[in-house]
Nucleic acid binder design. Structure first.
Lengths: 357, 357
DNA sequence: TTGTAAGCGTTATCAC
DNA sequence: GTGATAACGCTTACAA
């Protein structure tokens, strides 16, 4: 009864002042309403709105008019349920607010806009349980595909949750080569940075590393080590201190090195944040950058060029990775294939590692 | 036929090796499957899963077992469509990747976790059209409520899209007092910062302002102006240069002031990013911070404490705003009321504005 | 306590 | 071209 009333009302609400009054309990406009108002069937409305078939121009116009007049907005939920696809891709990121992952997300948003897909984000926070929950939530929303940015889930764990959905890995490699991945060669980036310091005349380079169970951190460590050994130097454990990618760990790292009396003329930090912390600790200790100690970071996050002195860093093409990921996912969704790609990071040299004269 | 086969298969798939083989075309497990396997009706399954009613313990166990065995994951879309609520709140943010808004988002995520609601993010990018699109997308997903972080949409424009949905404004005020808002007193923050500089002995303070059509920027400008006038100084237009909240505009701002020969001993920047740029330009010009020029920013973004020297800044409780927003939205969703609140930002004094001796 | 059946707002498969 | 009508997977009266 009330239902019938409201629906009828719906058909007229633009004109009826009374209807406006009960706006707060007004039901949403559906294609059924449009059908009634424009004198056609639901199916025809659907056809017009989706362009799925030829429709008589007059009816088409009537439908379009009604759609506009009633302010119809399709119910995405119902569309997805009925069609079996949600036109959305789930994005599992790690820590909204961390510069590198955010830049990838931005790229994804940009790359996806203009396509038929829209991203749904979930935050894994680098916690295994949270990543699983987040992934489950995405799958529960019936996303058509999943982009996993970083994280610590094995591909087996991912596939257990995502099942047959297309999956794309970003900023990480796939342990089983089961999924295509867009990654960056962290080892090479670290190698370049270290080599640059060596070529600038530094013989004793300290490394403040990242989380030891973190793939990127391991690769960066390897690159560092390779450069040192290739230069014919012996690898000294004492020059390496543990960090966790935070600025605070950069401070601690330098303090530890100093307290232990380790001598060094350069520092390579696992990421820029760590480099910021290191730089602060150095200045507190009265050491000048780059005159006394050179500093190089990794990520080239935006703030780095504004540090004093501007920070040399290994640039990861984060935004580009996101954009490529968007393209790749659209391809995968179109049943096409996509081959993994590995991008090469680029060393950006600024004053923090200026050659000493 | 094939459908029947697969469904039957579903009931056994854990045990059947053959079924595993056709995994890729396996349909998703539904409550119907669980019902069949555990010998009860759909409704009972729903009751058990949602705890909506008392169920015979044995049947309950059977259902739970089957759920686990089949790896059932509820279809959120169908749930929402059937129940009329999506258990999600739409979050319209501006520019994923900008520190202040990201921090609010993090707070929201944190505050919402543990409740029955999960956030869905959309990015308005400070563009009117994009904000509308994003809002429409959220409403189309039938979110139960909307949190609007910043942005340039008037409340009339918002309400046109959101209709009767509960709306909460964050980091902005409501033009019509139509919606509750969680905001920060930008005017007072700027006033404090400026007063601090004045009390430190600065008489000629430059302002690099934010976007002129941006509410926050206007308020910060007003606070600056009030402090200057209250100190009995005359307000000099020449000391104010336009910026746009970017680091680059900080560089430009200082360059402009210097080129125009404007004398100043302190700079108040519209936000930290601008302050970073200003600091770089100052050092390029051979001016020391804080000895020659003191610098204060706004936002206190994380990197600020690692600048050289560490940057004084007006801290906005961004994360807390997000958390409060989450609570508030849950209240609104529970039909409860929520009164707007305005938080007071706190000035954090660091070396960049150290008193000159 | 449990099952049956009627929606929720679409899309998609039929006949006509 | 177009209109019934059956899904889609779930919730929720309403009966039993």
């Amino acid at each position: 009864m009330i239902d019938r009333f409201i629906r009828q009302c719906n058909g007229l609400w633009i004109e009826s002042g009374f209807c406006r009054g009960i706006l707060h309990l007004m039901k949403k406009v559906t294609i059924q309403d449009i059908a009634r108002v424009s004198g056609v069937s639901k199916s025809t409305v659907s056809r017009v709105l989706n362009g799925t078939a030829q429709v008589n121009p007059e009816k088409k116009k009537a439908v379009l008019d009604a759609t506009k007049r009633l302010g119809f907005q399709p119910n995405v939920l119902a569309q997805s349920l009925a069609s079996g696809r949600s036109s959305s891709v789930g994005v599992l990121t790690q820590m909204i607010g961390s510069p590198f992952y955010d830049a990838i997300s931005q790229g994804l948003i940009a790359g996806l806009s203009g396509t038929n897909y829209s991203p749904i984000f979930a935050d894994g926070r680098w916690e295994k349980a949270e990543q699983k929950d987040a992934l489950n939530a995405l799958v529960g929303r019936r996303v058509d595909g999943v982009v996993v940015i970083g994280g610590t889930l094995s591909s087996a764990q991912v596939s257990k949750i995502t099942g047959e959905l297309p999956v794309l890995l970003v900023a990480r490699k796939c342990d089983l080569n089961q999924y295509p991945a867009i990654s960056v060669n962290n080892e090479f980036g670290a190698y370049q940075a270290t080599k640059h310091l060596l070529e600038s005349g530094h013989q004793r380079i300290a490394l403040i590393s990242g989380l030891s169970d973190h793939g990127d951190a391991k690769d960066r460590f390897k690159g560092f080590q390779r450069a040192v050994l290739e230069a014919g130097l012996s690898f000294e454990e004492r020059l390496v201190v543990d960090g966790d990618f935070s600025a605070e760990s950069g401070v601690k790292g330098i303090e530890t090195l100093l307290a232990q009396g380790v001598e060094f003329t350069a520092v390579f930090a696992a990421n820029d944040l760590t480099a910021y912390g290191a730089r602060l600790a150095l200045s507190r200790a009265g050491l000048r950058v780059p005159e006394d100690v050179a500093v190089v970071g990794f990520d080239d996050q935006m703030e780095s060029q504004y540090m004093t002195p501007p920070l040399s860093s290994v640039r990861q093409p984060a935004r580009e990775m996101g954009e490529r990921a968007a393209e790749a996912m659209v391809q995968l969704l179109g049943e096409a294939n996509f081959e993994s790609i590995e991008l090469v990071p680029e060393l950006v040299i600024r004053q923090s590692s200026e050659v000493r004269r």
